[in-house]
């Protein structure tokens, strides 16, 4: 049995950096992009339950095998005849290797990425998250500075936190990207 601290370390070090690859793997092999978040969460849960017994030697292989099995089980239960799920399995090794690039981010890339994540938040949310993250203010001071309720401030932080995680970890997906880019550009559409 692996203790929680070790499990958490392993999860952050070996698994979470693969989230962009996992997200694109799910997108390619599942017909509805709406299910991405749910599937990812279910896969992580299974990965952790398995790893709790014994940390896998090869996190990447383990993650994608778990993902594949989960998608196949889901598809079978939903009675979806989805060929791609099977066909792409053969290529899984190659596909995954191609995404290896993503793991080698420099500090500058990380900063840029984090900034982008912040920039794509809606204006009010961005303001609250900036106060929190850049100036490290507690909720009570944010409410005082911006004249908003505690509840509102907390909701902005929570939403911002989730959106930033989505963006920083796997957020190369169109579903998240399209509205956010529009919001960031502030373009007025016809």
């Amino acid at each position: 049995m692996i203790d929680d601290r070790t499990l958490n370390d392993w999860f952050c070090r070996e698994v979470l950096p693969l989230e962009p690859s996992l997200a694109s793997y799910i997108r390619r092999n599942w017909r509805s992009a709406d299910d991405l978040g749910d599937l990812r969460q279910e896969i992580y849960e299974r990965v952790l339950i398995g790893a709790q017994k014994d940390l896998p030697q090869n996190a990447r292989g383990y993650l994608f095998t778990t993902a594949r099995n989960h998608l196949i089980n889901k598809a079978m239960r939903a009675r979806i005849v989805s060929f791609e799920q099977v066909s792409d399995m053969e290529n899984i090794g190659q596909d995954v290797d191609m995404f290896d690039l993503e793991r080698h981010l420099t500090a500058r890339d990380e900063l840029r990425w984090a900034l982008e994540a912040l920039n794509q938040l809606p204006p009010r949310c961005r303001e609250v998250v900036s106060l929190r993250k850049v100036e490290g203010l507690p909720v009570s001071e944010i409410t005082a500075q911006l004249g908003i309720s505690k509840n509102t401030a907390e909701t902005h932080i929570k939403n911002g936190l989730r959106a930033i995680a989505e963006y920083m970890l796997g957020g190369t997906g169109k579903v998240q990207r399209r509205p956010s880019r529009r919001a960031a550009a502030g373009e007025r559409e016809q």
Binding site: L16, A114, L118, A165, M168, L169
Partner: peptide
């Protein structure tokens, strides 16, 4: 753990 990790990553801001 996932959110905690991502939030920490964003510390660079």
């Amino acid at each position: 753990w996932r959110l905690e990790y991502a939030w920490r990553q964003a510390d660079r801001i």
